[in-house]
Nucleic acid binder design. Structure first.
Length: 113
DNA sequence: CTCTTGACTGGTT
DNA sequence: GAACCAGCCAAGA
């Protein structure tokens, strides 16, 4: 238990997001749970909002809510940027919703042993 | 310090 | 299956 863990919380979130394989997607809750802050899924979303200020590029388009809905698409450069990025990775998105979401879902707790 | 808002989630109605 | 409520954490006014 390091007291400096909380300091790296955002960095850890960015790390996990960057570890998401291309063509896969994950949810805020999955990342939060993996980091041990399952009840703080909102913090993950908040961190994503700050990801634009990060020096490194964060594939935030691979992070959606538990319903596979592109809730944060409006925070990108353009409202359609997120969908285009996902589409360019082979992920089909219709009506702001990812198709075959359960199949494309990537859970760090299960795959990132 | 208090109140509000937000890229969320799970359970209940 | 959509709508509503409650919990949890952080940042800004």
């Amino acid at each position: 238990m390091n007291m400096s863990d909380s300091i790296d919380l955002y960095q850890q979130i960015y790390q996990v997001v960057k570890l998401v394989p291309k063509g896969r997607v994950t949810s805020y809750g999955a990342i939060a749970k993996f980091l041990g802050v399952a009840k703080s899924a909102r913090l993950v979303g908040y961190a994503m909002n700050l990801s634009h200020f990060q020096k490194e590029e964060i594939p935030a388009h691979r992070v959606v809510n538990r319903n596979g809905l592109l809730t944060g698409k409006m925070h990108f450069s353009t409202p359609t940027k997120m969908q285009e990025l996902l589409l360019s990775e082979g992920i089909v998105v219709e009506h702001d919703q990812i198709k075959s979401f359960p199949e494309l879902f990537w859970d760090p707790s299960l795959e990132l042993i």
